Amino acid sequence: MPKRPVAMFAMTAENVPRVFPPDTLTRLRDLVDLDPDLVARDFTDPRVRARLARTEILITGWGCPVLDADALAAAPELRAVLHAAGSVKGFTTREVWDRGIAVSSAADANALPVAEYTLAMILLAGKNVFAFRDRLRAERAFPYGEILPGVGNFGRRVGVIGASRVGRRLIELLRPFDLEVSLADPYVDRAGAAALGVPLLPLDAVLAGSDIVTVHAPETPETRHLVGRRELALMPDGSVLVNTARGSLVDHEALVEELRSGRISAILDVTDPEPLPAASPLFGLPNAFVTPHIAGSQGNEVARLGATVLGELERLLSGRELEFGVDAGELDRAA
């Protein structure tokens, strides 16, 4: 039997059984020499260091320590990093790419639940569900059986800001519905948008021409307050802003002003800062629906991340190209 490559987990230890349930873990251990009880949270730990010296494949996740020059020097055999989460920007360094180490991410798998959450919120917002729920709670009565004007998802205009992984998955999920979807993204041309099946418009046109605007751009210095006071003012009265990307993409001070006016509404799964201070007005505004950054993989969804890593490991060991390899050249404009 050929010798199995040595692998090691580098992540928060309690997440290992969540991300890699028994069947997935068993398959991983069939393929590589992996000790599930030795999980690296500190690359200077003597036990970790001894294992690192022989490790060829690092299976990483939330809580992975930084792979700096010192850690890489202690891992001369390392040839691949398979990340069971989204962004790799928090723990990879230039030395990783200079060494030619293959890096893969489960960001595509993590994008799906975010897109699903966003789809659900768009459809609920189209029905004005949150306002009607509050009205029913307050009045304990409702005009049952009446047709409510100004609501519904037939022909509702949805503007997507950013053709990121989540943005693209969302566009796919929106296709079966009778919605008018448009896209704003400076890195997508008209042919690329046509391939996605949506018109490409300038950001201002998307903001001014949408009933629901949903933000899916990456967090970079250039996208900070991408939706600021001027941009919010372009949104039509009664429109809804959805943000499941990063809180810093929206100017929260300007957003609170707009929400206080009652002119627009917002659905926020991410905020700036995060978590919000207890005194934040967003908690009390009736037209703000805030959730605690739960759109990404939760509960049984994290097992999808482990399954993605397993698939990547099978490809790596069979000499095939990684399906979800990370391109270092795209990190600057990736989430």
Rank of each mutant, 00 (worst) to 15 (best):
L249D: 00
A85C: 09
G162D: 09
Y187Q: 12
D23Y: 13
A120K: 05
H225N: 14
V188T: 09
G86L: 03
G325L: 12
L207V: 02
E301Q: 15
F132N: 13
L285W: 07
A106S: 11
V160A: 00
V302F: 04
E139D: 15
G155A: 09
F132G: 05
R135E: 13
P65K: 02
D272S: 12
V81L: 08
D42Q: 10
F324L: 13
A85R: 00
L200N: 00
E116P: 02
E95L: 07
G145C: 10
V88A: 03
R224W: 07
F130H: 10
R168V: 05
D35T: 07
L305V: 11
I267Y: 01
S104F: 10
E139Y: 14
R333G: 02
G262S: 06
E314D: 11
R230G: 10
P236Y: 07
A195H: 13
T26Q: 13
L200S: 01
D178H: 15
P22Q: 06
V213M: 01
S297I: 09
R137H: 13
G192A: 05
N243P: 02
F289Y: 14
A120I: 03
L241M: 05
A233I: 09
L259F: 10
N153M: 13
L78N: 02
D251K: 06
V256M: 00
F91H: 05
I294M: 13
P2I: 15
T26I: 15
T308C: 12
P21V: 14
P17C: 07
V6H: 11
G155K: 07
E330I: 15
P273T: 04
K89T: 09
K89R: 15
L200D: 02
A10L: 06
A193F: 09
T44L: 14
L31C: 10
R29G: 11
E146K: 15
V103N: 01
G192Y: 06
P22W: 09
F289E: 08
I161R: 01
A194I: 04
P236E: 02
A106Q: 04
V19Q: 04
